[in-house]
């Protein structure tokens, strides 16, 4: 039976693995972390319908019943291709495969790179990922001193659409995540005043625009302007400055908490992996796809496929779609060989 290696045990990797196993291939998933599920397992609830992310992750994990098999805490550090066969090495162990799927996902933008936003400097500047953690833990956000914040600002596009930090692309999911999180904060702390500082609200998916409208109905304030700099006030409040571009006036306000909507960056280590496979990153550092329309999982090297957020920012829906499309393409490839 032909073997497929899936590198990365996030939603994309798990979905593709299960589809390929059902097609009758022997599938092995390699996950560098100690648990499967990737970033999604760290989120609390998902947009647009606020389903608990644990449901999604658990269902995907339930397919791991021997085939597909998964190796946890296993980072592939070397890959070689010989006569259409791949040899993957991890900790001196060698695995063989007829096809490889890269599903290494993304990494969150390191928010401290936007120094003027004060992450890591001020107490109450957090990232959207940390807010998800707070939801998971308490069901509501908490300030450093343990209090509930009464006035929050969500800052869109942190590490997205920003050439200053070499992330010129849109991370796609942050707008809708911000709106989702704003609604959740409002529900958890009804008296909270919430502001979203956006440049464009890119609500591209089904139900996203509805979520935006729901946020408006719930009294979330939207300010069109990018944060320029933050400074700390007495009592660890944060003063933020932006331009209210709709009225062409500088705007400043003090808030209890600033949430930075961190974007998606290429995962560390993917560079070396794809270089070993003979691939190059695209200009943004993600895995280069050769046919964006008719075969969006195909790479330059035969037998190597890529799906999910390793090819660029993606939401879960698109990642699952890409995973299935990869399964079909791998099937076609292995049958024509």
């Amino acid at each position: 039976m032909k073997k497929v290696a899936v590198i990365g045990g996030g939603v994309t990797g798990l979905e593709a693995a299960s589809q390929l196993a059902q097609m009758g291939y022997t599938v092995t998933v390699f996950e560098k972390n100690s648990a499967a599920g990737g970033h999604v397992s760290k989120w609390d609830r998902l947009f647009p319908n606020r389903r608990h992310s644990i449901e999604v992750v658990n269902e995907l994990k339930s397919y791991l019943n021997g085939n597909p098999a998964i190796y946890l805490s296993t980072a592939i550090n070397k890959v070689t291709k010989k006569d259409n066969r791949f040899q993957l090495e991890a900790y001196n162990q060698v695995f063989e495969a007829d096809a490889v799927l890269i599903a290494t996902g993304f990494e969150l933008f390191p928010a401290e790179r936007k120094e003027e936003y004060g992450y890591g400097i001020y107490d109450n500047v957090i990232t959207s990922a940390e807010l998800e953690g707070m939801f998971k833990e308490n069901g509501y956000p908490v300030k450093r001193n343990g209090d509930k914040p009464k006035r929050l600002a969500f800052i869109h596009c942190v590490g997205s659409r920003d050439e200053k930090v070499k992330r010129p692309y849109c991370s796609k999911v942050c707008c809708v995540t911000a709106v989702k999180q704003a609604i959740e904060v409002k529900e958890a702390i009804p008296e909270a005043e919430i502001f979203c500082l956006y440049m464009d609200l890119r609500m591209f998916g089904p139900g996203y625009e509805d979520l935006y409208k729901e946020a408006q109905q719930k009294g979330i304030n939207f300010i069109r302007g990018r944060l320029s700099e933050a400074s700390e006030l007495e009592g660890s409040r944060v003063l933020i400055k932006t331009e209210d571009t709709l009225s062409s006036k500088p705007l400043k306000m003090s808030v209890d908490m600033v949430v930075l909507m961190v974007g998606m960056s290429p995962a560390q280590g993917t560079d070396e992996l794809i270089a070993a496979l003979g691939l190059q990153p695209n200009k943004d550092g993600f895995v280069e796809i050769t046919d964006y329309h008719l075969n969006p999982v195909k790479t330059k090297v035969d037998g190597v496929f890529a799906a999910g957020a390793c090819t660029g920012p993606n939401n879960i829906t698109d990642s699952i779609n890409a995973a299935r499309s990869a399964a079909v393409e791998i099937h076609k490839y292995l049958n024509n060989k």
């Binding site: 596009c157 302007g225 990018r226 944060l227 700099e229 400055k241 331009e243 571009t245 500088p250 705007l251």
Partner: peptide, 22 residues
């Protein structure tokens, strides 16, 4: 992209109505 960062950070903009973006 009319984000307004320039105007918000502007030294002159603290004292008067001035926006590079505008």
């Amino acid at each position: 992209i009319a984000c307004g960062s320039c105007a918000a950070t502007c030294t002159a903009g603290q004292f008067t109505n001035f926006s590079f973006r505008e």
